[in-house]
Design a protein around this nucleic acid. Structure first.
Length: 235
DNA sequence: GCGACAG
DNA sequence: ATCTTGTCGC
């Protein structure tokens, strides 16, 4: 994997939006997964009041969900946060972190949306295209789309709809907490994405890949040598 | 024109 | 996202 040149990402808003539309049509929604032995989790955090971007990537084995590798990459923040253009702010750092990975995962879970995006190219979808890997968007809040009543039981879900199409699922990953927004990124369909997220759920709100990446990116807690589905405590 | 708005 | 103490609850 090579790092994308800076100029590819340093685009004016109008150009970025045009590029998103071009890239969205290249996304594959049919399943095209190799046998999954490793699943990666990706998340971005910030330091120095936002001046420094921290990209964290963790790799867990499947089905043990044991942490086998973790990388943190820090670099100056190059773009401000603009709703709908999140990938241009976060992906450069994420790619640099992936570049330092010794093993290549067969599936990637990203903190953010996949195709549940105004132009169907959220950060998970965009990253999937650049890595040419199956990706799943695991977001903690809604960007676009509407949904109906959601059950209270763990595992309950309801489709996320936008302009006549199903762009994702609103999933109750844990009882009593706000739901997760799951959407396919690249090379897999919604049902498959949902299946993987549920399969990686411990007793916490976030699936293991994203939960550990989140922790690493925000400097919270400690990273266990062997994950145990949320049994390890935050310090 | 008036809201909504991933991280 | 990040700034932040204590506090309610399993």
């Amino acid at each position: 994997m090579s790092i994308t040149p800076l100029h590819e990402w340093n685009l004016a808003p109008a150009e970025a939006i045009a590029l998103q539309k071009q890239l969205a049509v290249r996304l594959e929604r049919e399943d095209r997964l190799d046998p999954v032995a490793r699943i990666a989790g990706v998340d971005i955090g910030f330091e120095e009041g936002g001046d420094i971007t921290r990209a964290a990537v963790v790799v867990l084995t499947w089905p043990e969900l044991t942490l086998v590798e973790q990388v943190v990459h820090r670099e100056p923040t190059r773009m401000p946060y603009v709703p709908g253009l999140l990938s241009f702010r976060e992906i450069p750092a994420a790619l640099a972190a992936f570049d330092r990975l010794a093993v290549r995962p067969e599936l990637v879970m990203v903190d953010g949306h996949g195709i549940a995006h105004p132009r169907r190219l959220g950060v998970a979808a965009h990253l999937g295209l650049w890595l040419d890997l199956p990706t799943i968007g695991v977001a903690k809040s809604r960007l676009c789309g509407r949904y109906g009543e959601l059950g209270e039981a763990r595992g309950d879900w309801t489709p996320l709809l936008d302009r006549g199409e199903t762009i994702g699922a609103v999933l109750r990953s844990r009882v009593g907490v706000k739901p997760l927004f799951i959407s396919p990124g690249h090379r897999l369909c919604l049902d498959t994405a949902l299946g993987w997220v549920v399969a990686c759920l411990g007793r916490t709100k976030l699936p293991e890949p994203t939960r550990l990446a989140d922790r690493l990116a925000s400097r919270r807690g400690t990273m266990p040598e062997t994950s145990s589905l949320g049994l390890d405590d935050i310090q």
